[in-house]
Design a protein around this nucleic acid. Sequence first.
DNA 1: TTTTAAACTTGCGTGCCACGCATCTTTTGC
DNA 2: GCAAAAGATGCGTGGCACGCAAGTTTAAAA
Lengths: 210, 210
Amino acid sequence: MDFLNGTTQRERNKVATRDELAKAAFQLAVERGLDNVRVGDIAAAAGVSPRTFNNYFDSKEAAVVARAAWRMERTADSLEVRPLGEPLKVSLVEAVVDRYASPSQRFQRGSDWQAGFRLMVTEPALRGEFLKGIAEMERSLAEAISARIYVPMGELYARVLAAAVVGAERAAIGHWIAGGQSEPLVEVVRQAVSFAVAGVSEEPGTGEQR
Amino acid sequence: MDFLNGTTQRERNKVATRDELAKAAFQLAVERGLDNVRVGDIAAAAGVSPRTFNNYFDSKEAAVVARAAWRMERTADSLEVRPLGEPLKVSLVEAVVDRYASPSQRFQRGSDWQAGFRLMVTEPALRGEFLKGIAEMERSLAEAISARIYVPMGELYARVLAAAVVGAERAAIGHWIAGGQSEPLVEVVRQAVSFAVAGVSEEPGTGEQR
DNA sequence: TTTTAAACTTGCGTGCCACGCATCTTTTGC
DNA sequence: GCAAAAGATGCGTGGCACGCAAGTTTAAAA
């Protein structure tokens, strides 16, 4: 996303506020449960007027989910920087897995992220918002895939593939939450995405057009 | 779903009202646009008090999407009645396609269903609700698949497969709407789901447990 | 540096909505 | 038929998104 690199002061302030709000929303939702959080509380925690909250987010649900959504959106970027010769199925798995591999403690039992995932799966209002975010990333991923393949029915194929990959990621999270979080989330995700791309043919991206 | 066969009068009334509401909500949303519809309008159109509306639906968005969601939920049932020897990949494709094949005029250009799909893709509020409905059906489909396969990692695999199939269906709709609806939706759906199940191995359900 | 314009924040007001609760009506099972 | 359960309705409340019209801060021109 473009608003990450703030060059001017104004932009940096905006990003900061937005992130404060998202952070506060997430934090409060995790520790109190979603419907014990008023948007006023979030605004207060971020040191901003209630009215301002709605300049940044359309709903408190959107704010709670925002950080997870931003994270998701990086998948397409990860795919684009994969080596060109690499088989598509491998690229896809790695692009997704990358985002779960980094700082080691983050996706463990008891972490905030885990609580967050649980929240998104549990609270119906959040689930909807979460899925909306996921749909966004699916779209961008489909574009990235589309740029990497050239086959008949390519646009539809890219959409389907993107949906499968993203769906697998979501399935992995659900499985991990539903089970006891006994194995590391990374491994579950890898397994799941590998299942999803099993049917992708081996030839590397033949139609790099750009 | 169980509430379809009303044996007692009460239940039949409930189903009828619920359906009236869903129908009215859909109709009004299509012809006016979602945010020119008050819940009072929907209630009135269904011949029911505004307060009663909220005894049936949590939001007007849920009401608009309801019928599409009910339709979706039939996929799992369709899968269960497929012949046992049939390869899973075939069963999945047919189970999905069935729902788009029936009365011929329904999924054409200019039909209400088409307008409905466009609405669900367009209006953000509806998209979220639509996706929530889809997630429901995904869950039931995953169970149905799980009952039909027996492999290591079966539960995760079933989830991933369900997500892929459902995602393919959604991708097909998006593709169909984005393009000019030139070819029949059924065909697009068949193509998409076929892509999604390409990686499923051939052996038929070996572990029918029930 | 001063000035001017644009961008952002804030307070206020409005319309809408979900839902708890109490009451009245309908359906059901005996 | 009759009591009890289930539903429908009206009313009231808390909450929320957003338009609008000031203020206030930042960016850029002079």
